[in-house]
Amino acid sequence: MRRVDPRWFIVFLANLLLWWLVSTANHYLARFSFLWIDYCSIHLYVGGLFGVYSALRLDSKQGWIVISLTGLILDSLEPVPFGTHVILLGLVHATLLYGRRRFPREGAIFGIVVALFANLFLVIALSFLMVGTNPRPGEAWLRIFVDLLASQFVLLVITPWFQALQERAMEMARIHPTTGRRVAF
């Protein structure tokens, strides 16, 4: 009997958890006071992190499934043309798949670097797509820059945790992330 391969499901659930945590943080960061500043508003965007584990650790087919599902979830929640995240995350995924053999893809530091660059690319791409509707694009870019700085800092902190979470989930399911074979940890 053919065994069901749950790798895509595990990674997708982890992505869903991350999305939920970040959107909860954004709910509270919509308006807050900090020290002497009475009005602060920050939006965290961590889309770059969704593609790291699936591109660096999973095999190609499983990675594409995760990226497509995560992209569809993000697209359904944000007022962007439907399919934008599927394509943008897909582009990040394809680039990482193309070059992953040449890099130390199991290292945590490399994961952080990839997440930061992927996030930077996604924020810039989304900004070019969305900023045209703004009555004063210059001011919008300033806000996007502040949000990007905050997002990159958060990414720096949470990427090792998120990678470890996905790794641990695979260990608990006793599955090797790349081959999909059962392993005894």
């Binding site: 954004n26 969305m130 919008a140 996007i144």
Partner: peptide, 11 residues
């Protein structure tokens, strides 16, 4: 239920 305020959109 959820606030989503960014430089791109406010919903």
């Amino acid at each position: 239920a959820r606030r989503d305020f960014s430089g791109w959109w406010q919903r």
